[in-house]
């Protein structure tokens, strides 16, 4: 055995294409399944939420205006980068207490899921858009457009696969997002930020915060510049709080009821549609 001391990783957040610490400088201990401390994660605050929403809003104009083809390529690039770092993520999941075989499965499925959604970017508008045969002399069509900034409250289960299953349909559809990573299991989310950073994803399209949910969910779901919330927390009180906060600015809210992130129900274009608005354009026909 070598006497070399391992270099431990500092886990920070991912906001606006940078890796800042929480503005509060607070951290909390992250334990693995054997209750051993494996890292200190940032304990983000309301101010961090605001900064992240601002970054997401700023990025929204560019990202929603990208061609569907380009968004598909960027998503594919994320998959390529993750494939290249498979070992890193497998080791990280093992460190958190996952069995080796399960870790391999989770990372490989995560890569495949990204590719699944990469392929949808230039197809869902064809599947869900319509040309409407109006009775008057107009050319009339309806096309999906991104809802805007989506706040995501991530799951504690399958920490890498779940976060990818949540992000991919949201950004494939041209939205930008702010994610509150799993409170108990935040590390793969933060490491995934590094993959995003290396994958041509424009700064601010995905923003990842760690910390205590009870300190952030309220602020994220009541923020006036967030257009929609995607929640995976089951707790009834939390769901009610999110719903009530959403009503302040008529936010769209989707609650997921799934615990099994490997399930193929997480691969379907209706999940993209959850965060799309339909725009209908009327154009006169005549000479």
């Amino acid at each position: 055995m070598s006497d070399r001391i391992d270099v431990l990783k500092t886990y920070k957040t991912y906001v606006g294409g940078k890796f800042p610490r929480s503005e509060s400088d607070r951290t909390y201990k992250v334990n693995n399944s054997n209750d051993k401390v494996v890292a200190n994660a940032c304990r983000c605050t309301r101010k961090d939420v605001r900064d992240a929403v601002l970054a997401a809003r700023t990025a929204s104009k560019d990202w929603s205006g990208r061609s569907a083809y380009n968004r598909g390529q960027v998503l594919y690039r994320i998959a390529e980068m993750l494939e290249g770092r498979k070992d890193q993520f497998i080791r990280e999941l093992e460190l958190l207490g996952m069995k080796s075989k399960e870790a391999v499965y989770e990372v490989e499925l995560s890569v495949d899921r990204l590719i699944y959604y990469a392929g949808w970017t230039d197809k869902y508008p064809q599947v869900f858009g319509t040309v409407n045969p109006v009775a008057s002399s107009h050319f009339n069509f309806s096309a999906p457009e991104p809802t805007g900034v989506v706040g995501i409250i991530a799951s504690d289960e399958d920490p890498l696969l779940s976060i990818i299953s949540l992000i991919a349909p949201v950004i494939a559809g041209g939205n930008t997002c702010v994610i509150l990573a799993s409170e108990s299991n935040p590390l793969p989310a933060v490491s995934f930020g590094e993959v995003l950073h290396a994958s041509d994803v424009p700064a601010g399209v995905v923003n990842i915060l760690t910390g205590y949910r009870e300190e952030m969910v309220d602020h994220l779901s009541s923020h006036m510049d967030v257009n929609a919330v995607l929640n995976t927390i089951f707790d009834k009180e939390t769901r009610k709080l999110i719903d009530e906060n959403a009503s302040i600015s008529v936010k769209r809210v989707v609650h997921y009821d799934s615990k099994n992130w490997a399930d193929d129900t997480h691969e379907n274009p209706y999940l993209i549609l959850d965060f799309q608005e339909t725009k209908t354009t009327w154009h006169p026909v005549g000479v």
Partner: peptide, 22 residues
């Protein structure tokens, strides 16, 4: 949710109607 080009206030049962934001 709806954009009328060189026309306004047109409605049709085949044409989806509804809003963004608030």
């Amino acid at each position: 949710g709806v954009v009328w080009a060189n026309t306004f206030n047109k409605f049709d049962p085949t044409s989806p109607f509804g809003g963004y934001k608030e």
